[in-house]
């Protein structure tokens, strides 16, 4: 609370008893919220380090009574986490490149280059926003099948270039760059591709980073669509494999289950904690504008 030294409440308000009580209740509710957010996630981590009997005791303990770090090793051996991780990274990197090149160029063209019928072309891209995504999910699958793309990474990479939200984010960003920069480059004899790749792209690192976060979290979280498109075990993404082989399996010991869940959620949590300021600003800025 740096800005202006006051919020809705002023220092004076906080001197009144009734306001003090309300403020106190508010702080308590926020504390309860924070607890309810952190407790299950920490519980998941600690459960992964307990013995199986301890996980199933009632009422549950928070800290393990004996620490079983060998659970993590068993978790690694249960399914080949690294091969699923590799598949997930493949999809992320390919999607990122497609977004960067295809949508980056298209939005740059609409935003900063000379194209007749710009409005019409812009609308062509935009119109897909009005169609609810689930309503063409099934034909989308049928389409991929008819194109012979099922069970191939291209089934993720190519459609990644057809994302209207990312297109709009990029266009808004390019709109915000001063046109003089590109005028100057043009006049100095830079070709259009050159001014895109050596001027626009380096200037767009912030928006690409925001997109990287979105694309990463989609690749990391999406379990249903990959489970349809990929139908061989060695192509599943991490989330799909977890859904198929961990969540829905009854025979697996609960502590090992939690150890796997812990291992899978650790990387995104670590990435988030490192880049939290940046990520949260990105969410606040782009979630609505998208």
């Amino acid at each position: 609370m740096k800005s202006g030294d006051r919020g809705i409440l002023s220092e004076h308000d906080l001197k009144q008893t009734s306001n003090k009580i309300v403020y106190g209740i508010m702080v308590l509710v926020i504390c309860a919220m924070v607890f309810s957010m952190l407790y299950p996630i920490l519980m998941m981590m600690f459960n992964g380090l307990k013995s199986n009997t301890e996980v199933n005791t009632f009422p549950p303990h928070f800290f393990p009574q004996e620490w079983h770090f060998d659970n993590l090793k068993q978790a690694m051996n249960y399914i080949d986490l690294f091969s699923y991780l590799r598949n997930t990274i493949y999809i992320f990197v390919g999607n990122m490149l497609m977004t960067l090149v295809v949508l980056g160029m298209a939005s740059f063209s609409i935003s900063r280059m000379n194209v007749p019928y710009k409005k019409a072309i812009y609308f062509f891209f935009l119109m897909t926003l009005f169609i609810p995504a689930s309503s063409y999910m099934v034909p989308n699958f049928v389409n991929l099948k008819e194109l012979g793309l099922l069970n191939q990474y291209a089934a993720f990479w190519l459609p990644a270039g057809a994302n209207t939200f990312y297109f709009l984010l990029l266009k808004n960003f390019f709109d915000g760059i001063h046109p003089e920069i590109f005028e100057a480059a043009r006049i100095d004899g830079a070709s259009e591709p050159r001014s895109f790749f050596s001027i626009a792209v380096p200037l767009s690192v912030p928006i690409f980073a925001t997109l990287a976060i979105f694309i990463f979290s989609t690749a990391w979280n999406d379990w249903f669509w990959p489970s349809l498109v990929m139908h061989s075990d060695d192509k599943y993404t991490l989330a799909t494999a977890i859904y198929k082989y961990v969540i829905n399996v009854k025979a697996l010991n609960t502590n090992i289950k939690f150890a796997i869940l812990f291992l899978v959620s650790l990387p995104p949590i670590v990435v988030f904690l490192i880049f939290q300021k940046f990520i949260m600003r990105g969410v606040a800025l782009s979630a609505v504008k998208g």
Binding site: V34, I41, I242, V264, S265, F272, M280
Partner: peptide, 22 residues
């Protein structure tokens, strides 16, 4: 508090399904 509130959004959905079942 902001970080804590946003944290569950970072954890993959499938993991949360497993967690909430428990």
């Amino acid at each position: 508090v902001r970080v804590a509130a946003y944290l569950p959004f970072v954890v993959p959905g499938v993991v949360l399904y497993g967690l909430w079942r428990w």
